[in-house]
Design a protein around this nucleic acid. Structure first.
Lengths: 239, 239
DNA sequence: TCGACTTTGTGCAGGACTTCACAAGCCGTT
DNA sequence: AACGGCTTGTGAAGTCCTGCACAAAGTCGA
């Protein structure tokens, strides 16, 4: 473990990049949620929040929230709570949002079109810098201030724009091919909306969002609830 | 492990609804993925698959897959593998997909529009039966064979169409209100795309999909990779 | 019928994450 | 300056999940 500290951190506050590697995956996912809750609070002029308040706003248990935050360092004040702006800053830093990241979007169909126009990305640190599609007919179409480019330009653009994150919104059949091209061009993180399993080198991260899978999970619980009602009327909630 | 067997299962095959309640949440999420992989295989004319093959197709480890399937019962044949169509049937049953479920979609903005037109729902057991929006200007607009209705009609339609699952694709500010209306109308499962935490009664399930959160998680790993590269060049993959 | 081979189903150990419960620490008041 | 009230940060225990490794059980060929 390389334990080089920043020269400037006099206080025992700033856990190094080193330490971030030990942040549990489950915690990382929640940090993003806390961040959203915090920015909402900040917009309302709130200065400090207790773990209890923030936990409620984020929909988790307060002990979990405190443990999550403790992975970033010790930014709370006992008896008081957390300073909202400090926490926003720290979480942003932990998530690597201090540098805006360039994102490419491949597959301008139904969903891709919506994603391209989705405002939630820009407002939270991401900038879509390029849109790609395989269909020539679509190339040139302007969406959200960008022109759709042909996928053959992918390599050039990814390199010149320093794209490290890409979103795949193609049909399932095209996903692996697109993925391979992205990886070859240097993309190291992929958000995949296509209903297909992608295989990538170890150093590339893939996250998958499958809308039908989400509904099927709900369907399972619907059925469970239905039969529970028939059998004994006992309901149990889901985490 | 509660190992109570049904008294009546001579064949030791059919786990009762009772047993489904004990299927781990993590397993449920993967069953949907297996199902997709299986239907792909079936379309290609494959008759049987081994746990190894299916696991590869689904992007998981074969031991995990076998354990997951064992929660449904014993549908494999040692030395041979699993019969594809049997497995499709059993997983579909476990997930409650044998009865098609009516889905309502609220919020016909950018994303809602795309979801309404997304073919992946219908092809996997779900039928969108109604679209709602708060904006009068949008009411009446035809999308994917449906007319957008005003959200004030929500209660009527949900009841008459027996909607049990709803998708929220509204702005964050409207989400809780829409959620409350849905719950009041009898919806018991919600898929939420709005970047907001919903509070619901215990008997209602909510699943959340937040696109920006997904990107932020990727951003975290990007940053981790970057600093790892600076320090020692060691890369570690992510499960 | 037997034996070699294949693949499932699962006990078990280990790891990851959650939750509890409380000592440590900070603030405002007296 | 000491105290009471709050809230954080964290050891420890508990729960859930994963992955190994192997016995059990089936197939196929001779």
């Amino acid at each position: 473990m390389t334990d080089q500290r920043d020269p400037d951190d006099g206080a025992a506050r700033e856990p190094k990049a080193d330490r971030w590697r030990s942040v549990p995956e489950a915690t990382v996912a929640r940090l993003a949620v806390y961040l959203r809750a915090l920015t909402t609070q900040a917009d309302q002029g709130v200065i400090t929040v207790s773990s209890e308040e923030l936990a409620t706003a984020a929909g988790v248990n307060s002990a979990k929230l405190r443990k999550d935050l403790s992975h970033l360092g010790s930014y709370g004040t006992r008896g008081v709570g957390y300073d909202v702006s400090t926490l926003i800053e720290q979480i942003s830093r932990a998530l690597g949002l201090t540098q805006h990241r360039a994102v490419a979007l491949v597959g301008i169909g139904n969903l891709g079109h919506a994603l391209a126009g989705y405002g939630g990305f820009a407002s939270r640190g991401f900038r879509i810098v390029a849109l790609f599609d395989a269909e020539r007919a679509r190339v040139g179409e302007p969406i959200a201030g960008l022109r759709v480019r042909h996928i053959d330009d992918l390599d050039d653009v990814v390199r010149s724009e320093h794209v490290s994150i890409a979103v795949i919104a193609t049909p399932a059949g095209a996903a692996q091919d697109v993925c391979d091209r992205l990886v070859a061009a240097g993309v190291t993180s992929i958000l995949n909306f296509a209903p297909a399993v992608l295989s990538v080198p170890d150093n590339v991260d893939v996250r998958k969002v499958d809308l039908a899978v989400e509904l099927q999970i709900l369907s399972f619980h619907e059925q469970r609830k239905a039969s529970a009602g028939d059998n004994d009327g006992t309901f149990e909630e889901v985490g």
